[in-house]
């Protein structure tokens, strides 16, 4: 199920503006990789290139390669739609479809792909909601709109929606930044469970969170406004947080800037 991702010589442009320059990194399967760094350093941008979501932004384009188990997801014959159903994404702000029930949200991705029998959908809904640690809280009100849930529950609903289509990789763009500490804890526990099955990449502003949930950490930085973001270093999380190789990393994690 879980696949690895290799990023080779990645440059990301918004129009003529070079936003991220020269990123090389490897994301291991069945592990959590965290992207940390100050605002504007390009960590979310890099994350969005991993499932071609950056293409939603007009003018955004890349140079370089992103390999999913050695398959280049930017090869001309590759359909971005297939990339995105293979590499799921959870966003910063919980975004369940407001016009759909909890049930409808979970099966939204499946309904796009094929007609499925109700009994089969029921099974997927239960499995996905259990997988997102939400089943017990919502099993009696699956027909209610997703908007009746709390922010943390909505985010777990979005995770359930993302894993319902059985992706190989799960990308999370600051999934806890809109949540309270208790909901954050619930998501972090969930991430720990999900990595048994999925390759997970998480962008976070919260260094403690990166330290708690990730196996590998990548630190991005930016030299100044208008300059491109770069990957400064990437290593096992405990190394990054105890003896980083770069001075900039140490300054950032010890709170001296950013």
């Amino acid at each position: 199920m879980a696949k690895r991702i290799d990023v080779l010589h990645l440059n990301v442009y918004y129009g003529a503006f070079l936003a991220v320059e020269g990123v090389n990194l490897a994301i291991e399967p069945k592990a959590v990789t965290a992207f940390i760094g100050p605002s504007g350093c390009g960590k979310s941008t890099v994350l969005r290139t991993l499932n071609r979501m950056h293409e939603v932004t007009p003018g955004a384009r890349i140079e370089g390669k992103v390999l999913l188990d050695s398959q280049d997801i930017y090869a001309p014959e590759v359909d971005p739609v297939n990339v995105r159903s293979t590499i799921g994404m959870v966003f910063q702000k919980p975004n369940p479809f407001p016009t759909m029930s909890i049930y409808g949200n979970v099966v939204a991705g499946i309904r796009l792909k094929r007609r499925t029998r109700k009994s089969e959908l029921d099974d997927v809904v239960e499995a996905s909601l259990r997988g997102a640690n939400l089943w017990e809280e919502v099993k009696d009100r699956l027909d209610r709109p997703g908007s009746v849930l709390s922010g943390g529950q909505q985010q777990r609903l979005c995770i359930a929606r993302a894993i319902a289509i059985e992706p190989q990789v799960l990308l999370m763009d600051e999934p806890c930044s809109a949540l309270d500490p208790i909901s954050t804890l619930a998501i972090e526990e969930l991430i720990y469970e999900l990595k048994q099955q999925y390759t997970i990449v998480i962008v976070t502003h919260n260094m403690q969170q990166a330290a708690r949930v990730s196996d590998t950490t990548a630190f991005f930085n930016i030299a100044g406004t208008g300059k491109p973001g770069r990957l400064i270093e990437m290593d096992e999380t405990k190394t990054i947080f105890s003896q980083p190789a770069e001075k900039a990393t140490e300054d950032y994690i010890s709170g001296r800037f950013g």
Binding site: N82, R84, T86, G109
Partner: peptide
């Protein structure tokens, strides 16, 4: 909201499917 459109696209929706999933109902 852009988030709804992106949510649909991130689930592997084509542009038209994203319209049907996120834009029309809303």
């Amino acid at each position: 909201p852009k988030g709804h459109l992106e949510a649909a696209l991130a689930l592997g929706a084509t542009r038209w499917e994203a319209m049907r999933t996120a834009v029309f109902p809303f």
